[in-house]
Write a protein that binds this DNA or RNA. Structure first.
Length: 875
RNA sequence: GGCCGCGUGGCGGAAUGGCAGACGCAGGGGACUUAAAAUCCCCUCUCCGGUUACGGAGGUGCGGGUUCGAGUCCCGCCGCGGCCA
């Protein structure tokens, strides 16, 4: 605060004052219960930030301002508003800092949180800080671990299509007969949280595995370190079991089509068939000339998934992913060396590199042949890295005639190409993917693609060599990380007398949660896949009932805490449960969720998945967590480029607030353009809204006085009809724009109204009061100050939102343009509500119009909604 | 390569199929001032005619279409952005 005199607009003096007022009066504390049964609830949520060391950037306040305006608006409309904030505070930068400096990540994190909180509070957001959560808080971690155990305790019943307690999993008799260990193994294999040996992206530099999404171009998303593929035993979440519901329930939510589509594409549902191709006995290629191929004695076959079973007659070779388990068994001795060399080379490539369409296809023949089950044709079996082990069955039937990549591969290696769909006349391309009649396809000939698919599947089912199958691109979620700064898994591994794991696991009892992170002197990665927690030898071993256990040393990924924070806000200090069911029932789903589009797929998919498991297990009561979702657009630098330190175009909120105040910052970010649009920053623009706020200030306050007191023009008089109409029109525009999240045009409406008020020498007190209320959600500090200057002793935060009178909004007279053949030629000024017939007559009688239509034939006259006349003349 | 979104003044942007360019920025002129800043008032899409008043023509990336009427709807192209490959 500077000691400068108050009468001119001085945000630095008024903003901290009102922030203190709101804090001291707990103005925005949200009660657990509605004031009356009629009160509507409104849960408006921001994507909580990762408190990085560099502090807030101007992108954060964009979404936060939008939600804050709506929260304040709804409060004034009498709604029961939930508007919380917290910290997504586990993450790699804090751990890296710890590795570099030896300082515990919690200390660094706390410092960053304090800085973020200071910056957020300086913008005057109306959060209920009593509900602040921090994902690294042991009391929060406790419930993240508890939810993990809920998921661990759940299996997916494919018949009921829902998650059920593992105790309800039917155990087959043969499993039961083999004893309790087998039963436990069977259960473990069905849990939604399970361990499996999977090929992972191991990043030696970070000392951790990474999810596919965290690997970009073979390098880690954070840090850009090289990543290699290797098989490791990891925790996974069976999100694939929920694929269908995650897809289906997108129909229940009010999200933009583009975000829904991104989620749908990520889930990647496709319908097709699974087909078994028997492998031919060695030397089978010799018998092919006789048209008889002999299957291998051991009956081995290759199972493929295809979305185009109609093209089966066009299969001319087969491809296995280099990692496919059959490769070793079927490769002939002559090909073994080449195959093994190729497998090694493929292991060092990322999926992205392998499947790049532009890349020249490579592969190696295994020496083996499979038999096409529909025509007995022998198909050479290759391995190639363009086939991924993780998609479908990790094997394909190659149909070059109808698949671009197969065509390319066939060209490179001189494999035969058979078209099975007739391309349109004049087709000059290679593979033809479109519709058309089947050719070279036996009993399918002449059928269009869809019909041919159905007929082929029927045929496969009848012969017992294939089945209808739905496939998803979605993979199970790799849930473990070899890091320190994350939630420990609440899982104990049983050890035998020699200290070797028995393979039996037990979850930590609820009463013993949270499993806290042990303190470490050294946070460096161990360089082996066990993670830094193995160094905490005191923490690592546990004795229970005379048995020795070793704690799980993996930690959870950063996504874990953000999967359920919106629930914890509702009951943040509950020590008995993760959330009181009555509170969850009352507040959920979130009515409006605002955040960056970078979370459009993963965060939202993971959070929806956890929500659905909690829903199935009876802990939450609505199928979807986020009813309406809005993605704010990115704010670019003043040079129209993405803001970044390296480009030197970063705008600091601290600086903006220091120069112009929080209200100008808020107002500018909302005035820049539509919330969802990408838009460049402009300091001149900030100055523009600052000038607007100064003008508003001067409408009310006497600048010449020593203290804040009313301008002489503010008088206790009734507004004239014209001013009253403009006021009500402004109320209408601001209200309707707020309902539709059109903040930029709402602000424009208020600017127009002040432009009208500025030249007036008498400004009715009542009109200014109403206007200040309209402005208050956008620029709350100046609004509070003016409200107080207008004679009120309490905050305006719960003043009723102004209502407009629809009759008053209507103008007495309107101007009606008259067009001739669509061009405006004249205008009429008529009383509002003049009938169409009368408008038509007035228009035709108009002198200027006469000169345009004179002598011409009038074809018709159109008077839409009595607002315009268009006269259509011939010639 | 596929899918999605977007192309409007010098700039950010406004326009339920109905007067294109609201509002703001930048720019120009004026008032106030010893002066400057601040503030207030006026002008500001392009071209043509006119001293003025004003009138006319064109104009929303390009080309077509639907319609009495298209920035808005449809088809094709070009450019930019995002997501996926």
């Amino acid at each position: 605060m500077t000691g400068s005199p108050m009468p001119s607009y001085h945000p630095k003096a008024i903003e901290p004052k009102w922030q203190r007022y709101w804090d001291e009066h707990q103005t925005f504390r949200t009660s657990d219960h509605p004031a009356s049964p009629q009160q509507r609830k409104f849960y408006v949520l921001d994507m909580f930030p990762y408190p990085s060391g560099s502090g807030l950037h101007v992108g954060h306040p964009e979404g936060y301002t939008a939600t804050d305006i709506l929260a304040r608006y709804r409060r004034m409309q009498g709604w029961h508003v939930m508007h919380p904030m917290g910290w997504d505070a586990f993450g790699l930068p804090a751990e890296q800092h710890a590795i570099d400096t030896g300082e515990h990540p919690a200390i660094n994190t706390e410092r960053n949180v304090q800085n973020f909180k200071r910056q957020i509070k300086m913008l005057g957001f109306s959060y209920d800080w009593q509900r602040e959560v921090n994902t690294t808080d042991p009391e929060y971690v406790r419930w993240t671990q508890w939810i993990f155990l809920q998921i661990y305790d759940t299996w997916f019943d494919p018949v009921a299509k829902k998650g059920r307690p593992i105790a309800e999993l039917p155990i087959p008799d043969e499993v039961r007969r083999r004893g309790p260990d087998e039963v436990a193994r069977y259960q473990d294999a069905h849990r939604l949280a399970y361990q499996a040996e999977v090929p992972v992206n191991w990043c030696p530099a970070l000392g951790t595995v990474l999810a596919n999404e965290e690997v970009i171009d073979g390098k880690s998303e954070r840090g850009g370190h090289p990543v290699i593929r290797m098989p490791l035993r990891q925790w996974l979440m069976r999100i694939t079991a929920y694929a269908e519901r995650l897809l289906e329930d997108l129909n229940l939510v009010d999200w933009s089509e583009s975000i829904k589509k991104m989620q749908r594409d990520w889930i990647g549902r496709s319908e097709g068939a699974e087909i078994d191709f028997p492998l031919a006995a060695e030397g089978g290629e010799l018998t092919a000339h006789d048209g008889v191929a002999t299957p291998r004695a051991d009956g081995l076959s290759i199972r493929v998934f295809t979305t185009r079973p109609d093209t089966l007659f066009g299969a001319t070779y087969m491809v296995l992913a280099p990692e496919h388990s059959l490769v070793g068994q079927i490769t002939t001795s002559a090909q073994r060396q080449a195959v093994e060399d190729y497998q090694r080379a493929a292991a060092s490539k990322s999926d992205l590199e392998r499947t790049d369409l532009a890349k020249t296809k490579t592969g190696v023949f295994t020496g083996a042949y499979a038999i096409n089950p529909v025509n007995g044709r022998l198909l050479p079996v290759w391995i190639a890295d363009y086939v991924l082990a993780s998609y479908g069955t990790g094997a394909i039937m190659a149909v070059p005639g109808q698949d671009e990549r197969d065509w390319e591969f066939a060209e490179v290696y001189g494999l035969p190409i058979i078209r099975t769909v007739q391309p349109p006349e004049g087709w000059s391309g290679k593979a033809y993917l479109g519709d058309g009649p089947a050719i070279n396809s036996g009993f399918l000939n002449g059928l269009q693609v869809e019909e041919a698919k159905a007929r082929m599947i029927d045929h496969l089912v009848e012969k017992g060599i294939g089945r209808r199958k739905v496939n998803y691109k979605l993979r199970d979620w790799l849930f473990s990380r070899q890091r320190y700064w994350g939630e420990p898994f609440p899982i104990l591994h049983e050890l035998d007398d020699e200290g070797r794991p028995t393979g039996r696991m037990r979850p930590v009892e609820d009463a013993d949660l949270p499993v806290r992170l042990p303190d470490l002197a050294d946070f460096k990665p161990t360089g082996n896949p066990e993670g830094p927690l193995v160094k905490a030898t005191d923490w690592l071993y546990v004795m229970i009932d005379g048995k020795r256990y070793r704690r799980e040393t993996n930690t959870m990924p950063q996504w874990a805490g953000s999967c359920w924070y919106y629930i914890r806000y509702l009951d943040p200090r509950n020590a008995e449960r993760f959330c009181d069911p009555e509170k969850a029932r009352y507040w959920l789903p979130v009515d409006l969720y605002v955040g960056g589009a970078e979370h459009a797929v993963l965060h939202l998919l993971y959070a929806r998945f956890w929500h659905k498991v909690l829903y199935d297990r009876g802990h939450v009561f609505c199928p979807e967590p986020f009813q309406k979702l809005v993605n704010q657009g990115m704010i670019l630098g003043e040079n129209n480029e993405k803001m970044s330190k390296s480009r030197g175009n970063v705008i600091s909120p601290d600086k903006v607030v220091d120069e112009y105040g929080a209200d100008s910052m808020r107002l500018y970010e909302m005035f820049m353009g539509p919330l969802e649009a990408v838009k460049p920053w402009s300091m001149r623009g900030v100055e523009g809204v600052y000038r607007f706020l100064s003008r508003v200030w001067r409408l009310v306050v006497d600048e010449r006085a020593e203290n804040v007191c009313l301008n002489d023009s503010v008088q206790d008089v009734e507004p004239d009809r014209e001013l009253l109409r403009a006021l009500h029109r402004t109320i209408q525009r601001v209200t309707e724009d707020l309902d539709d999240l059109r903040f930029n045009t709402a602000i424009a409406a208020m600017m127009e109204f002040t432009n009208l008020l500025t030249p007036l020498s008498i400004r009715p007190h009542r009109v200014l009061e109403t206007f200040v209320l309209l402005l208050s959600p956008f620029a709350p500090h100046i609004a509070e100050e003016l409200w107080s200057a207008l004679g009120h002793s309490q905050s305006l935060a719960y003043e009723p939102w102004p209502q407009f009178d629809p009759d008053l909004v209507k103008a007495d007279e309107i101007e009606v343009p008259i067009q001739v053949n669509g061009k405006v030629r004249s205008r009429l000024t008529v009383p509002a509500g003049t009938g169409e017939e009368q408008l038509r007559e007035l228009a035709l009688a108009d002198e200027r119009i006469q000169s345009f239509i004179g002598g011409k034939k009038i074809v018709k006259v159109i008077v839409p909604r009595g607002q315009l006349v268009n006269i259509v003349v011939a010639g």
